[in-house]
């Protein structure tokens, strides 16, 4: 599987108007992607009440189309969702609702997946589980579109090819520019030879 990290300077585009970004991705790679859009906490289908029902409902729907990697029980176990199964989706904390949505999206047997802004709302442990699960699947390509790249570098188990959004296109780069030089406050860190910007401290 090929892992790609696309850095954008436009956080608003990432969160609310991602169509142009997704189109650029498709053009760059010459293929279509299944896209995880970070609509805040609207990951619940609304047709079910509990987490258990939601998982069963979504997997059933996926099986009738492109297929699902894991059945409901396996998904609960492998995505560490067992403490949540009996709870109402609407009662989950914001981060867990987002994670549930990501788990169900990632479980689709789509060959190429594009994740927009997965780092917000998710604690580090959720990110690690996401990366582990993706590694275990037979995806051909996974693209993470992010504004702040450091978390991905710190937590991902693999090396990414680096992509930078510039105006109307996407460029392959060897390293990301350090944003401090372009007017964004923060500190530059190091991740191998890759310059990046982040506002997170090491914890």
């Amino acid at each position: 599987m090929n892992w790609h990290l696309l850095l954008t300077d436009n956080i608003d585009q990432l969160d609310t108007q991602p169509d142009a970004l997704v189109t650029k991705c498709s053009l760059h790679f010459g293929r279509e992607f299944a896209v995880y859009r970070p609509l805040p906490f609207v990951d619940h289908t609304g047709f079910t009440e509990t987490v258990e029902e939601e998982i069963a409902f979504v997997i059933e729907a996926q099986r009738s189309t492109e297929g699902a990697y894991l059945g409901a029980e396996e998904l609960v176990e492998q995505w560490n969702l067992s403490p949540l199964v009996g709870r109402r989706v609407a009662h989950l904390s914001g981060g867990w609702r987002k994670f549930l949505g990501i788990a169900l999206f990632a479980n689709r047997k789509a060959p190429a997946k594009c994740f927009l802004d997965v780092t917000s709302h998710l604690a580090d442990e959720r990110m690690r589980v996401l990366f582990e699960r993706l590694e275990s699947q037979s995806n051909e390509a996974v693209v993470f579109c992010e504004y702040d790249s450091r978390l991905i570098f710190d937590l991902a188990p693999t090396r990414f090819s680096l992509l930078l959004e510039r105006d109307d296109r996407i460029e392959v780069v060897e390293r990301f520019p350090v944003r401090g030089a372009t007017g964004t406050k923060g500190t530059a860190g190091t991740a191998g030879t890759t310059g990046f910007y982040s506002n997170y401290e090491q914890s």
Binding site: I11, G94, S120, Y147, D148, T184, K185, G186, S198, N199
Partner: peptide, 13 residues
């Protein structure tokens, strides 16, 4: 509760 886009300068400023 939750800071939207803390990596963006306008937000943190």
């Amino acid at each position: 509760d939750e800071i939207v886009a803390p990596g963006a300068r306008a937000q943190m400023d």
